[in-house]
Nucleic acid binder design. Structure first.
Length: 240
DNA sequence: TAGGCCATCTGGTCCT
DNA sequence: AGGACCAGATGGCCTA
């Protein structure tokens, strides 16, 4: 029975990743010592969250957070990550099962031959971390996009779907301006829709005609009427 | 409380 | 082979 005890501290300078923690814990458990130990590690928010199962933006405030994690508890968590479930049949929805069979013959679960469960766990954790980083970079890109598209100032920031929809409209408006300057026909026509769509979730919808139709009534549509005029004001300012 | 939005985990597939 | 990409699942927070 491991009795190692790990004290994880969230430092101001967060440099250690969750993966680093896990490797340290591996070393600790591998030491096979039956004595109490304490390990002090600076953690970033995501690492604290990964260990505690909490989300940093809501739960972790400042640098005062201290997390005591019993080593066995930690490894119990790890076990969940890469647990084999081929026979246990962790339930999959039909939709998911269908997606996973796309584009090929019925697949049996791919096995990494010759690697231990612990190694699989480690690789899963690495994959998770890469995926987190990937999503963070994607969110950074969304943030940069929010900054360059004109929109009505709101207390809350634009959602992702709103950001994409407004960006699309902005591009179309710019395209119209360019065509107008060239004396060509404008490819897009913006029509302010009437209040209250069939879906009932919009106060006004920016519609397209001339070959392009909106794919769906998005949540962003409630802001589009205001933003439509804003787009044109912005264009007039920028293009004399 | 329901619904919207989001972050994260996860495993399949694609690409280098 | 391994990383990137993708989409489903899950759970938390927030707001009407």
């Amino acid at each position: 029975m491991l009795r190692n005890r790990v004290r994880l501290l969230q430092g101001v300078q967060s440099t250690t990743t969750f993966l680093g923690i896990m490797r340290s814990l591996e070393r600790l458990s591998g030491s096979d010592q039956d004595c109490d130990q304490e390990m002090y590690i600076d953690l970033d928010d995501a690492s604290v969250d990964s260990l505690t199962g909490k989300r940093s933006r809501h739960h972790v405030v400042g640098a005062e957070v201290k997390v005591d994690v019993d080593l066995m508890g930690v490894f119990k968590t790890i076990g969940k990550v890469g647990e084999e479930s081929d026979s246990s049949g962790s339930e999959r929805s039909p939709k998911q099962a269908k997606r996973r069979n796309r584009g090929g013959p019925p697949t049996t679960r791919r096995r990494k031959s010759g690697i231990s469960a612990r190694e699989r766990n480690l690789r899963r954790l690495e994959s998770n971390e890469r995926e987190r980083m990937r999503m963070h970079s994607l969110n950074d890109a969304f943030e940069q996009l929010r900054e360059v598209i004109p929109h009505v100032k709101m207390e809350r920031k634009l959602s992702k779907i709103e950001t994409l929809t407004l960006a699309k409209n902005y591009i179309m408006a710019l395209t119209n301006v360019i065509c107008e300057m060239r004396g060509e026909e404008q490819p897009y026509t913006f029509v302010d829709g009437e209040c209250g769509s069939s879906s009932g979730d919009s106060t006004g919808q920016l519609e397209l005609s001339g070959g392009e139709q909106p794919e769906e009534a998005s949540p962003a549509s409630m802001h589009e009427t205001n933003n439509n005029s804003l787009l044109h004001e912005d264009l007039e300012r920028r293009i004399p």
